[in-house]
Structure formats: C-alpha cells, structure tokens
Amino acid sequence: MSVGVNPPSILLADGNEQSRQMFGSFFAGRGWSYDVVPDSSSMAGALERGTYDIIIADVALSGPDSAKVLREILEKHPSQAIIAVSPNATYEDALTMFRSGATDLLARPIDFSWLERVVQQIVFSRRNDERERATYRFVTSERTEMRFSCADVVQVSSISLPLVGRLAQSGMLSHTEALKIRLAVQEAVLNGLEHGNLELDSQWKEEIGQDGSDKFSSVRKERLADPSYGDRYVYVTLQFSDGSLEITVRDEGKGFLNSKVFQANGKVDSLACSGRGLALMSSAVDEVRFGKNGSVVTMIKRLRERKSTEDYGS
C-alpha cells in the first residue's frame, strides 16, 4: 500500500525520553515527518499550531486528563486519527481510549512493523479523502434523489446523506450544521411516514393505556402492515447549487400540517406530543416551506464560502 508522495505526519505525545527517541528514529528512518510533545497540554497546543495525519499518544501522559484532551481535540477535528499507546493494553485502557475516540491501541513493547502497517492504512485512507475534497471544490451543483418505502423508514435508524457530508468536508457546512441537517431530514421523513403516509393523528400519543403504550404506536403498527398505507413512499431530494442546499421531502399522504401544533412564530408547546420535529427542522436550516398541506416540505440552508484552495490537503 502506497501513501504517495506526501509522507505521513505524526504528532507523538509521550512522556518517556527513551521511548520518544525510539519512535523518533523509526519515523525518521521512514522519512515520516513528526513532532514530539511530552504531555497532554502541549499535545493540545501542537494541534492549535498545525495538523497531523495521526496522533500517537501514551495513555499515561502527564498534565490534564489525556482522554479528555483527546475528546476535545476530536470535537475540533472530527477526522483526526489517534493511536493510543499503553504499557500493557489492558481492557480498561482500551475502553477508556476507544471511548475518547482512539482509532487503534498499541501495546508496549512496540511492534513497529504492525505500527507501520496501521499508519500506512490510515494515511492511505486520509489521502483518498483529501483527493475527494480537493476535487469537490470544482463541483458547482449536485443533486441526489432518494425514495423510502414505509418499511425502509422504520428499519433505517439514521439516514446517510453523502452530499451533506461532502459539503461539510468542503467547509460549506460546519459539522454541527451537517448533523442538524441530517436530523432535520430524518424528522421530515418520519413526519412524512407517520403523519403523511400512515395518516396518524398526533393526539393519539396522548391516549396512553395501562401498560404505558399509546394509541399512536398501536395504530402505526397496524397501518404499516396495511398495504393501502404501508405501500406509500417518501421521496427526498437534495439539491446543492448557487451557494445553497435545498432539501425537499414529499410523501404520498393527504397532508399533515396542523397550524395548532406549529404556530406561525415557530414556537412549540413543549408538552404537546407533536410539533417538536418541525421546530428541530426550523432550527437546522434558514427556511422551511410547506406545500400541499404539509405533504411537501422544502428546507433551504444557505452555505458558507468554500475553504480556500490552500486549505485542501491539510
């Protein structure tokens, strides 16, 4: 596996001088670029100044809690690859570090041939992503169309939107904005299924039986099995062009929009068992429009400027 002309760049965070020298001579011998820091606070500082393909961090770094520092780094750089190094790679170490977002765990004594393979795999994948991002800056418009049966909507717990991912990677959406848009689409699709295609009444959520289950859930189950409702589809179209993303979600029902649950000012009654999905959709985008009594929902998000050319590949 080749990582091309751009060698791996590594940040080594290790409190042990002898270990640092061992890693250093291994990296240098392969022509990899690297920086070394001795503790967790300088690890965070190094990430403020530069970017690295991989952080190799000892689990027992001195300074602030290294697992917490790694989590904070990942909040700012979600695609950062991290290899944790543990003296004995215990189950507890592994759990702590994977929960902090580590990509892999390396036990001491270090198996350098294994480390080399892992680094090459990570960097190979990152270079591919970088090439895709670099190419995407030439894309001026893109359209995706999706179709979900009622059964699909129930089975698919989260809808993947590659177009939204590409816009986030290009800097036109922040990662939080991308997450909110994914959830907004999920809400719109679920609304299309339940209130559109299955024609369920939100008020049924209030009718709770002795066992804690509600009428809404039981009728939902019945109608999913009834072809006259269950065979209807929800259609999602995403169109990126002219600096904005337009998402349209259309169902095949009679329309679910009810002005009582979603007031003109966008405020919701937090106790009502409906209207919250619409509020979440509104908070994710700049504009929400309803057509055909709610069976067509259009959401528009204005996009940021793209990253400048020199930001690609970093």
């Binding site: 997450l179 959830l183 999920q186 809400e187 679920l190 959520k205 709770i208 804690g212 509600d214 937090s270 106790l271 068992c273 919250r276 999905g277 979440l280």
Partner: peptide, 17 residues
C-alpha cells in the same frame, strides 16, 4: 450524543406519567 423528536417524545411520556 443525539436526540430527536421521537426520543423527546418518550422522555415527555415519562414526564407526564
């Protein structure tokens, strides 16, 4: 890390009971 209207609905059902 994520909660949607469905999850909120369940939380509120607990609240109301």
């Amino acid at each position: 890390q994520i909660i949607n209207s469905y999850g909120i609905g369940k939380v509120l059902m607990c609240y109301k009971r």
